[in-house]
Write a protein that binds this DNA or RNA. Structure first.
Lengths: 178, 178, 178, 178
DNA sequence: GATGAATGAGGGTTCATTCAT
DNA sequence: AATGAATGAACCCTCATTCAT
């Protein structure tokens, strides 16, 4: 792996583990085995490093959704969304832990606030469309509730990955909706 | 209000508004209108102040649950739990915002990790008991799902109190379960 | 002397001796015998410290000019200006050394550029008025030349206070103009 | 132009424009279009680069004086000195701006302090000789005053090239002395 | 000669904490 | 109890310098 990717990955690990604010550049450098100053050859600031990590993570999520966004069958569409979310959260656990922990902070609101709201709205809208096809009453509210449910499930999993059986939850959720 | 409570409340406000890490003791003192050093007459450190705030908040939550924990009718019990949660989140929004923002951090995991897990387990167990009475298949999983749903709902509300209609969500949730 | 004045004076000494850019906050603190952080109780930044020093120095100069600005007799007015300049340069040598060394730098241009130009123009105008009364041909140009002469004299003195006999120069200048 | 001269000239431009301390090696390299490390093939350090620039500039000044140092007629000699000084300041403005801005700093005092004092003394002596021929009373003091005047004029010009009419000042000075 | 990734000392600044008053 | 001046460790960042290629 090249130096930039190595530093970025190390930073993500530490940010996820102990928080952005509690992670110093020197800690990242030490764990990555490079000099402090080197980070600034790749990113102009600590905040820029965070931004890059968040942007890349969001792009990955977007990409994983492209695969099933066009699914016509409503049950399949819901199933794909739930499965895809669980899959990406497990696969990129560190990113999600960081994102969930930091998404209330001003710095992230500035960077990702609007994109995140837009993405959320888009997902809710798609869920609503599919729930409507399945004859749910009040599909928009139901979609919001389902979104909250998935988000809550992910949040609780990230809070305690060992104690929270995400796949059992996923199964249960699929049984209910798809 | 006595000095200690005044300082503690001021700290909670600032922690909730701008984060624990971004709030300095001098800011708290300035906003509270007291000298910087005074806080140390009541708490040995900034972390102890945070701990006290979190403990107190958790105790309040516990207390609010005592009122309905003995409810016999399962639908009423579920209704009370949902309503009580929403009520406390709205009434003590600052505490919940702080708690949700910070609950993944090591410092909080150390302090509240175990109590929180215990409280969660207790709630889930109660929910499961009631769902079982209502003949839900797989009531334990269903309880976990409901817990996640409530938690997710609260989280999304705290993320954007103006844009997220908590009461409409509550109504929808009540319609489904109670 | 109080701490603030002590720190400010120490900073002026070091700035004058080795330049603003070559003087670190830690050097000032060490020489002043206080902790680094203390300076920030009095000035919000290193630049603010410099600004305060420059502003105060300029105010002193202004004040010393008030005493003779109203002098009616042209020869006396010129004499007073020359003597006052020499006196203040000798008395506040550190300030002048700092000011002469730093006045070309952007940071000072931003802080004092306009005030300095205005003050210079005012002095030149007064000199011109007095030279006109003394029947000098082209008094405005002559005033500019005299201003340059005084400035050059001061500059060379500050460059080498021991090797440059400022008072002999002053005497010679007074002989020519007053 | 060869690489060394190109780098040196680029460095002079930047030093003059924004100061020695505010100019980094990487800025010089970027503007010169070469790699950061290349400078070290020609100079052992940033300070050595500055030294070379200053030495070369001084040598040029010396050289420009050789042309008229032997002028016999005193008025012509004074005229040549004034004109030559103005000419070189305008022609090599960047060097002079750098030199005037930095000549009080320790680093330059160490390098050029003694040579500069020697050159100044030599010029003053020549001026005195010519002033004596013109029957000025106290020609040595008068020479020092003239030297200060020229230096002050140059300094004020460099401080504000657009606002200070150097050639008008030169004319006025020539009228007085030559 | 020429490159630019890598280093690490040092800079300005913040802030939790202490303590004399 | 209450003050706020004082401390010093730690933070983010810059940059002259080195060196493998």
């Amino acid at each position: 792996m090249n130096q930039k990717a190595h530093i970025t990955q190390t930073a993500l690990s530490l940010f996820a583990e102990q928080g952005y604010g509690n992670t110093s550049i020197s800690m990242i450098a030490r764990k990555a085995g490079v000099a402090q100053g080197l980070m600034y050859n790749f990113y102009p600031s600590k905040e820029a490093l965070l931004t890059a990590i968040l942007m890349e993570g969001m792009a990955d999520v977007q990409e994983s959704m492209v695969a099933y966004i066009q699914t016509r069958d409503p049950k399949a569409a819901l199933r794909h969304h739930i499965q895809s979310t669980v899959r990406t959260v497990v696969a990129r656990q560190e990113f999600w832990r960081l994102f969930h922990a930091i998404r209330t902070q001003k710095i992230v609101q500035d960077i990702l606030g609007e994109p995140f709201r837009a993405a959320s709205a888009s997902i809710v809208k798609t869920l609503a469309t599919n729930l409507r096809k399945l004859q749910y009453p009040n599909p928009t509210q139901e979609a919001r509730l389902l979104f909250a449910q998935i988000d809550g499930m992910v949040g609780l999993y990230l809070l305690d990955p060992k104690g929270f059986d995400l796949h059992k939850m996923q199964k249960q959720l699929l049984k209910k909706y798809a």
